[in-house]
Amino acid sequence: MEVNEVFEKVKTLFEEELGIDSEKINMDAKLEEDLEIDSLGIVEVVMAFEDEFEIEIDDEELTDVGTVGQAVNLLHSKL
């Protein structure tokens, strides 16, 4: 799967599952500041990723994930 395909899937997930305004979602968007995803929301995001991409994400892998782009790259590397 190409990076842009992963991004499109992530965008759809954020929009449909979490109710985030699609206009805010781009590769540079910060999860906390821009998309208002708090610590509980991050857990939801991870669960949604795991279900959608049929992967498992460990907590340690999330340490450096602060933007949509970083999340997309992490997912891309695991597929």
Partner: peptide, 12 residues
């Protein structure tokens, strides 16, 4: 509730 407070808030 989604209409009233937005889906992102309503979900919480």
């Amino acid at each position: 509730a989604n209409e009233y407070m937005g889906k992102q808030n309503a979900r919480k």
